[in-house]
Every structure is written in C-alpha cells, then in structure tokens.
Computed example of a mutant assay.
Amino acid sequence: MTALVLPDPRWFPSWAATVADFGEEFMHGSGAWVLDHPVLPTEAACEELVAALAVSALGDPEDDKVPSTYYWITDGSGSGEEVIGFLNLRHELNDWLLEEGGHIGYSVRPARRRQGHATRALALGVRRAGELGIDRVLVTCDSDNLASARTIEAGGGVFEDVRNGKRRYWIVVPAAALRPTT
C-alpha cells in the first residue's frame, strides 16, 4: 500500500533508482529546485537534498516561499518498501501557488505509474493537509496532463478553471481528517 515518508538518506538505493527513472523529466513535489544544480542519483546528492529540504521546508517570506512538508512516496510493501515518487504539501498559498502551484505537488516514477500510487498518495496528502487545519486543498496540473486530471478528480477534486495553462481543482478535506479546533 502506498505510504508517505519523510526524506531520509536511509532510502538512498530506491531514491536513486527513482531519480534515474525520471531521467530528464521534472520531478514534481521532489523539492529538487532548492538546489542550484541537477539532482544526480548519488549518495552525496541524496544527503545534500535531504538537508536542503529540511531548511526549505521552513519557508522564507523574503523569497516568497511558504512553509511546506516534503514527502517521499513509497509503495508501502514492508521490508521491500521502496521510494517511488515525491509529494510536497505547502502549508499555505502565496499568490503564485494560488494561481498555478496549489497546496500539493506530486509525481510517481514512470516505472510505477498506472498502479494507483498517485491517487493514494494524493489522498494521504489531503489527509495530512487536514491535520494542519487546511479544510480545502488546491491541486493543479498542466491543462494537457489528462492522467493527472483524472487522478485529482478521483481524489475528489472539483474543477474550478484553467489559469496560465494549469487546470485548478479544489478538494474538500474530509471532516475526520481535520485538526480539531481549540
């Protein structure tokens, strides 16, 4: 079963295989953009990225960066568990995220697509958003990415509109997932 784990160098072998599988394809939700160079599937790169994600997750108001939590998607199979993708949950929206980026960005490695992992990872991300007190989650995808649109719709996404080539969907967080108010 699909699971979300926090980035950690102990996942290096399967993380490296996932990075290699993506090749030149953009790894949505990976946080790779926090580095000033391409992410290579090496132990040093894995350790560097994990450290950079921990700092980036805090956000930086001066650079218009919001706090977020980075996750690695695993297949959740137990002892043979492996990293198969990435998910980034942004705790709030700035102007750009409201227009194009959304609360959640995710991607599953090409070799593990069409197995339901993206749908399950998105559902887990929505639940985690609820734990943060977010009651509606914005999720976007490129207007020509029909597979991602189907994933978002399967996760309860209600289409709002298209802005700058991005389809925008809102998902209401289930009441059971919402953090209790005090």
Rank of each mutant, 00 (worst) to 15 (best):
D63E: 13
A16R: 08
V108L: 08
L98K: 10
V172C: 10
E24Y: 01
V83H: 05
H91G: 09
R112K: 06
G157T: 06
G76R: 01
P9H: 06
A45H: 15
D95W: 08
R127L: 00
H117L: 04
E82F: 02
S107F: 04
E153Q: 13
N94V: 07
G156R: 08
V158G: 01
N88M: 13
S68G: 07
V50C: 14
A32T: 15
L40F: 12
A32L: 10
V66D: 02
H28N: 11
G29S: 07
E99Y: 09
D161L: 01
L138S: 02
S30Y: 11
D21V: 00
D63C: 05
E100F: 04
P13C: 09
A129N: 00
R120M: 11
R109P: 00
W72S: 00
A176S: 15
E131T: 07
R120C: 10
T119Y: 01
T74M: 11
G76A: 07
D36Q: 13
A176M: 03
L40K: 15
G85S: 06
A57D: 09
D64S: 07
G85P: 04
N94I: 05
I104V: 14
G76V: 00
S148V: 01
E160R: 12
E24K: 12
A54C: 03
K65C: 06
D21A: 15
I152Q: 04
N164K: 10
A51M: 06
A121I: 00
D135Q: 09
S68Q: 15
E43T: 13
E43D: 13
E62G: 07
D8F: 08
D161H: 01
A111N: 08
A177Q: 06
G23E: 03
T42P: 12
L35C: 10
V137R: 07
A147Y: 08
G85L: 03
A129E: 01
V126D: 10
D8T: 04
L138W: 03
V162G: 01
S148I: 02
G29M: 08
Q115D: 10
F159N: 01
R127K: 10
T69R: 14
W33H: 14
D63M: 09
G31C: 07
S79N: 04
R10S: 13
E160Y: 00
L178S: 09
M27L: 09
T181L: 09
V55M: 06
S107I: 04
D75T: 03
A51T: 08
V39K: 13
Y169K: 11
T119I: 13
I152Y: 05
C141A: 13
F12M: 02
G155P: 05
L178E: 04
T2A: 15
V126K: 11
T151P: 01
A147H: 06
W15I: 00
K166F: 15
R163T: 05
G133D: 08
